[in-house]
């Protein structure tokens, strides 16, 4: 697939396909979470409700309509990203987690605000977070399918320990994704230019060993 390979000369730190799928999936994920909270409120499994301002859909039926519409958007964006990520080597090169020692080193550096950040290059903490949230997202989709179709996809529901447990795992996955979002957004606030790079792409020197922003 030559069109997926790195061209000579400056390339975008974040290829267009990554940026597009990121923002589409981000919007869909927000819709999924807020409409999911609406659905949760109809029959809570924990002793609290989500405030109505944080929910989407207005009532249970509206929440379901949003959830099952955004579902396809998220699914398509996720699929495009994963196919691209596998075919281009992006997942292997940038996302696949590295050893725990690198994670500890980068995490320690990050906590002291000393972690160098160059666009298009993913440090060990980022790799762990992104790989983690991708894995959780896949599990969220699978548990979601298992509680949507506990008869037609009964084997999947069985795999997650039955309907009631699958519903709780689906909720726990949501909580993990929300946790990721909090950290992710906090890190973007600490290094705000990364936000612009995720929008405009940023520029990266072809020499991957020595990444620098090219004006």
């Amino acid at each position: 697939m030559p069109f997926l390979q790195r061209r000579p000369g400056p390339r975008a730190a974040h290829p267009l396909i990554v940026r597009l799928s990121h923002w589409i999936a981000a919007a869909a994920m927000i819709c999924m979470i807020m409409s999911g909270w609406q659905i949760y409120n109809a029959s809570p499994i924990l002793p609290f409700l989500f405030p109505s301002w944080a929910t989407l859909g207005g009532w249970l039926g509206g929440g379901i309509a949003w959830h099952f519409a955004a579902m396809w958007v998220l699914f398509c964006a996720g699929l495009v990203y994963l196919i691209y990520g596998i075919a281009s080597g992006h997942l292997r090169r940038d996302i696949a987690p590295v050893g725990p020692r690198s994670v500890a080193r980068d995490l320690f550096a990050a906590l002291r605000f000393r972690l160098a950040h160059s666009p298009g290059h993913y440090n060990a903490v980022q790799r762990l977070l992104y790989a983690g949230v991708l894995l959780v997202a896949v599990f969220t989709v699978l548990t979601g399918l298992s509680i949507w179709k506990p008869v037609q996809l009964g084997w999947l529901t069985w795999l997650f320990g039955g309907y009631d447990l699958a519903r709780r795992i689906h909720f726990a996955c949501m909580a993990l994704i929300v946790g990721f979002l909090v950290i992710h957004i906090a890190l973007v606030l600490i290094v705000p230019r990364t936000l612009w790079h995720m929008i405009a792409g940023g520029r990266l020197k072809p020499d991957a060993q020595n990444p620098e922003i090219v004006p």
Binding site: I39, A42, S43, L60, P150, Y163, D164
Partner: peptide
């Protein structure tokens, strides 16, 4: 069999 409500409980 299991009766499942649209609200989520069963």
């Amino acid at each position: 069999t299991r009766h499942i409500c649209v609200e989520g409980w069963s």
